[in-house]
Amino acid sequence: MYSFMGGGLFCAWVGTILLVVATATDHWMQYRLSGSFAHQGLWRYCLGSKCYLQTESIAYWNATRAFMILSALCATSGVVAGILAFSRQPTSTRLSRPFSAGIMFFTSSLFVLLALAIYTGVTVSFLGRRFGDWRFSWSYILGWVALLLTFFAGIFYMCAYRVHEGRRPSTPR
């Protein structure tokens, strides 16, 4: 049980850090504009070496931002629940800590998947036509890696829950 939780906690820590970095950085997309390179994130866009806040309230940016923030919050609470899962708990609790941590990581994975799907769909269909020479950049890729890590953290914690349930003495009803 503890080896599954240890693997889950490692994936969770790295995934949460990557979620925060991906959300905060300005390299979701790179493109060429008027002969110079530019890049943009969820909060700012940069032309050359000068960066500007994105002041427009465009729905897909707001949705992507909201889902990324929710994902980071769920992953953080999953890390806390995952750390607490290492402590001894009475066997009569209704909801086990590894199960709770696993659910939080699966929820985080769902939120980051929604954020990346929204951003990908709008970028490919709208911004891809607007800018000729463009590509997704490293912040966007970190989001996909964080998705995988939080999903695997959820799997590890669900496996730990199953192992823990197998050891629990059965009580007659």
Score class of each variant (00 low, 15 high):
Ile58Gln: 08
Pro172Phe: 13
Tyr119Gln: 05
Ser71Cys: 08
Val112Asn: 05
Tyr140Lys: 05
Arg97Tyr: 10
Val14Glu: 04
Thr171Asp: 06
Leu142Lys: 00
Cys11Arg: 00
Trp134Glu: 02
Ala75Val: 02
Tyr52Arg: 10
Phe126Met: 14
Ser57Met: 07
Val79Asp: 06
Trp134Gln: 04
Ser71Pro: 00
Phe99Arg: 15
Ala160Val: 06
Trp43Lys: 05
Leu142Phe: 13
Ser34Met: 14
Ala12His: 01
Leu127Asp: 07
Thr55Leu: 15
Leu149Gln: 02
Ile83Lys: 02
Gly143Glu: 06
Ser92Phe: 15
Ala115Ile: 00
Ala160Thr: 04
Arg44Ile: 03
Ile58Gly: 01
Met5Phe: 02
Phe99Met: 11
Leu110His: 05
Gln89Lys: 14
Glu56Cys: 07
Arg32Val: 15
Gly132Gln: 11
His27Asn: 13
Arg173Lys: 07
Ala12Val: 13
Met29Tyr: 07
Ile118Gly: 01
Arg130Ile: 11
Arg94Phe: 12
Ile58Ala: 10
Trp138Thr: 06
Gly78Phe: 02
Tyr60Glu: 09
Thr150Phe: 01
Leu73Glu: 07
Ser34Val: 14
Ser77Pro: 00
Pro90Ser: 15
Tyr52Leu: 05
Leu148Ala: 10
His27Phe: 07
Arg135Ser: 14
Asp26Lys: 08
Leu70Cys: 08
Arg130Met: 12
Val145Trp: 00
Ala59Asp: 14
Thr23Leu: 14
Tyr2Leu: 11
Tyr161Pro: 03
Leu147Gln: 05
Leu114Ile: 13
Leu147Ile: 01
Pro90Phe: 10
Ala24Ser: 15
Leu9Trp: 03
Gly143Met: 07
Phe105Pro: 13
Thr23Gln: 07
Gly78Pro: 12
Arg129Leu: 09
Arg168Ile: 11
Leu114His: 01
Phe37Glu: 15
Arg94Gly: 06
Leu95Asn: 14
Ala115Leu: 05
Met1Gln: 06
Pro172Ala: 14
Tyr60His: 08
Phe105Glu: 06
Arg32Phe: 13
Tyr45Asp: 09
His39Thr: 07
Ser3Cys: 07
Leu113Cys: 10
Tyr45Asn: 08
Val112Ser: 06
Gly102Ser: 09
Arg65Val: 10
Gly15Asp: 00
Cys51Leu: 05
Thr16His: 04
Ala66Leu: 12
Thr25Ile: 05
Arg168Asp: 04
Thr171Gly: 08
Cys159Lys: 14
Pro172His: 13
Ile69Val: 15
Phe136Ala: 00
Leu18Ala: 09
Gly102Leu: 05
Trp43Pro: 08
Ala101Gln: 08
Arg44Ala: 10
Ile103Ala: 13
Phe105His: 08
Val80Ser: 03
Tyr45Val: 07
